[in-house]
C-alpha cells in the first residue's frame, strides 16, 4: 500500500486561532517497500503525523487528504477496522498498553477486534505465529500474565499484538527507546526480518540518527509541524547546517565524514558504518600509494 498525504494540517483543540498548528500542509508519499524514517525534535509533529495514518486522529474538514492504498481516510465510508488490520501501529512504550490477564488474550485482542469473523482455531494459529515471529516461546509465555515478563519481553508481546493481523504496513513510534544495546540490536533485526516477510513498508519514528542512517531507505525531517527535508539518509545528513537548525544531530558516520573532509580527506560514503569503514580504508590505502 502506498501512503500519500497531501497538505495535511492539524491543530490540537481549538487553538487554530492562535496559529499553533501541530501539522502544517504536510505532503508526503511513502512507497510500498520502503523502510522510512521520520525524524525531528520533540514536539515537531512526528507523533501527530503518524497517528493520522490509522485514523487515530481523524482528518478534519479542509485539512488535506490521506490516502493509504485503497483507503481514503477523508471519506465517511472509510473502513478503519480493515485499515488498522493492515496498517499496524506500535506506540511509544507499547508495554504500558498491555492489559489482558494472559499473554495469549493480549495478543488475540488485535485479531478479535479488527477481524471479528476469525474462528477461535484460526486465532490460536495466528497468536502462536505472532509470538514466535517476535522470538518468544509460545508454550512458555501464552498463559503467563504480561506483567510477569521483563521489559524487553513485554515489548515483544506488545509488538506481537500488532503484527498478529499480518499488517502490510508497520508504523513504530520510538520503538527502541528504553531498550538495552543488545535488546535494541535484536529489535532492529526483528524489524528487518518482518520487512523481508509480510510487512512491506516500515515507518519508523526515531530520535536516533545512527539508527536512521544505518537502516532507512529514506527519511523525512519534521520541524514545527512541517516537513523541511525528504531524501535518502545521505541526502539528509549531508546538509549538516540545516539539520542542526531543526535541533537534530548528525549520525556519527556523517560527523566523521565531515571532519575528515575538513582535514582534506574525501571519504564519500552512504553513512552506514560499513560504508564509512570501506571509504576510510580505501582512502588510507590509496593515499599511501600516491
Amino acid at each position: 500500500m502506498r501512503i500519500e498525504t497531501e497538505k495535511l494540517s492539524y491543530a490540537y483543540g481549538e487553538s487554530k486561532a492562535l496559529m499553533n498548528l501541530a501539522l502544517k500542509d504536510v505532503t508526503l508519499t511513502v512507497e510500498e517497500g520502503e523502510f522510512f524514517g521520520i525524524i525531528g525534535q520533540t514536539g515537531s509533529g512526528k507523533t501527530t503525523f503518524v497517528q493520522h495514518l490509522n485514523g487515530l486522529i481523524k482528518l478534519k474538514k479542509n485539512s488535506g487528504s490521506i490516502k493509504i492504498g485503497e483507503f481514503d481516510l477523508g471519506e465517511k465510508k472509510c473502513d478503519f477496522k480493515k485499515l488498522r488490520a493492515r496498517l499496524g501501529m506500535v506506540f511509544q512504550y507499547p508495554e504500558y498498553q498491555l492489559f489482558a490477564e494472559t499473554v495469549f488474550e493480549d495478543v488475540a485482542f488485535g485479531v478479535k477486534n479488527f477481524m471479528p469473523e476469525t474462528s477461535p482455531e484460526q486465532v490460536e494459529v495466528m497468536v502462536k505465529d505472532a509470538l514466535e515471529t517476535v522470538g518468544l516461546n509460545y508454550l512458555k509465555v501464552k498463559d503467563k500474565s504480561p506483567f510477569e515478563l521483563s521489559g524487553g519481553q513485554k515489548r515483544r508481546v506488545a509488538i506481537a499484538g500488532v503484527i498478529v493481523t499480518k499488517p502490510e504496513v508497520l508504523v513504530l513510534d520510538e520503538p527502541v527507546a528504553g531498550l538495552d544495546p543488545q535488546g535494541k540490536r535484536e529489535f532492529i533485526a526483528l524489524l528487518h526480518k518482518l520487512h523481508k516477510s509480510f510487512v512491506k513498508t516500515i515507518i519508523l519514528v526515531s530520535h536516533d540518527m545512527d539508527l536512521v542512517a544505518e537502516n532507512c531507505t529514506r527519511a523525512a525531517v519534521f520541524s514545527h509541524g512541517q516537513i523541511v527535508a525528504v531524501g535518502t539518509p545521505k541526502e539528509i545528513f549531508s546538509n549538516a547546517e540545516s539539520l542542526e537548525q531543526t535541533g537534530l544531530d548528525l549520525p556519527l558516520t556523517a560527523y566523521l565524514t565531515n571532519m575528515l573532509k575538513q582535514a582534506g580527506i574525501t571519504a564519500e560514503n552512504d553513512y552506514t558504518v560499513d560504508g564509512l569503514i570501506k571509504a576510510i580504508v580505501s582512502e588510507i590505502n590509496c593515499g599511501g600509494e600516491r
Partner: peptide, 12 residues
C-alpha cells in the same frame, strides 16, 4: 533512563 525520550538536542 530519563533521557530515553529526548531528541538529540534535548538530550544534549
Amino acid at each position: 533512563e530519563s533521557t530515553a525520550m529526548l531528541d538529540p538536542q534535548g538530550r544534549k
